[in-house]
């Protein structure tokens, strides 16, 4: 099945809150996608719509051209693990939950699930509700990976995991993505830790999609321009400025957009210093409330 995911003016409103506001994008599939956003930016809402956990209030979301909500042919190809896992229902033992997954998921790989259970040292005879936060996350990770679904989504599935376990997760995910290529979407705000895994990145802010690009293109897109305030202002005129800092006559402006050789030469001529901007900084500036709409060119 094609895992071409298309969202068009996708919206989700709760009683009086707009969680997602006309979000549109296309994911061609077969890649690892990073979904970044601050708390409350709409990451969980978006993924819940992609997985059919919720019905859109407006717009459409399709996978392989078919609407997701209540469409068994499509939802069977999707797996979303939110936080510590929707499949980690308390009152049932880990073992029972994994058996349940095996019954319900035609694509479930029980052998692989056992490997992962050992990897994360999950106690199979324990009630899922009594597991530590981290172990519940690990259970969610096992369910997501062993489901082997063409589209697998993890919504902050690292909560409560210590650093070594998080790296076990990243390693397992990467190995799995290479051995059984499929669409994986990871939402996170531990950007520095995982961003090298992403092929494409989507950034949500306040329910809107502010950016969707190749991760590599993004790494080349942010620059910090530092120098004499007047010169900096002249140089960044017409560029998308994400943030500014000023100290005396010196100013530093964070700009978005790749700088060609011509611009670089101009910066050098004006005595301006051009520094790279890490993805993490780019994310912070893109989603900063005060700067969200400042300096944007129409």
């Amino acid at each position: 099945m094609s895992t071409f995911i298309e969202a068009e003016r996708l919206s989700l409103r709760y009683d009086d809150v707009t969680a997602l506001d006309e979000v549109s994008f296309t994911l061609t599939g077969g890649k690892i996608y990073g979904l970044l956003g601050r708390n409350g930016s709409g990451k969980t809402s978006l993924l819940s719509l992609l997985a059919g956990y919720r019905k859109p209030s407006g717009g459409t979301v399709t996978v392989g051209g078919r609407p997701v909500f209540e469409n068994a042919e499509v939802t069977g190809q999707l797996c979303l693990v939110r936080g510590t896992g929707d499949a980690a229902v308390s009152g049932l033992k880990v073992k029972e939950l994994l058996e349940f997954a095996e019954h319900l998921r035609p694509s479930w790989d029980a052998g692989y699930a056992r490997e992962l259970v050992d990897l994360f040292e999950l106690p199979v005879d324990k009630n899922a509700g009594t597991l530590s936060h981290g172990k519940q996350s690990a259970l969610g990770i096992v369910v997501g990976l062993a489901s082997r679904t063409p589209v697998t989504m993890f919504d902050e599935s690292y909560l409560g995991l210590d650093a070594p376990s998080r790296y076990k997760f990243y390693d397992a995910l990467l190995a799995e993505a290479m051995a059984h290529p499929r669409t994986m979407i990871l939402s996170t705000h531990l950007i520095e830790e995982v961003s090298a895994l992403f092929e494409e990145v989507l950034i949500l802010d306040d329910g809107r999609l502010v950016l969707h690009d190749d991760a590599e293109a993004l790494r080349a897109s942010g620059s910090a321009v530092t120098g004499d305030a007047e010169q900096v202002d002249r140089f960044v005129d017409g560029m998308r400025v994400l943030g500014e800092k000023r100290l005396g006559r010196t100013k530093s402006a964070m700009v978005y957009g790749e700088l060609d050789a011509d611009r670089r030469a101009r910066a050098q001529a004006a005595g301006l210093d051009l520094g790279p901007l890490a993805l993490q900084d780019l994310f912070i500036h893109l989603t900063e409330p005060a700067n969200a709409h400042q300096g944007e060119t129409p």
Partner: peptide
């Protein structure tokens, strides 16, 4: 409802099913 509906949806099954 409490135990099986959530599991059902989490494993890609529909409400109708």
């Amino acid at each position: 409802v409490n135990t099986y509906l959530r599991l059902q949806l989490a494993h890609g099954r529909t409400r109708r099913e």
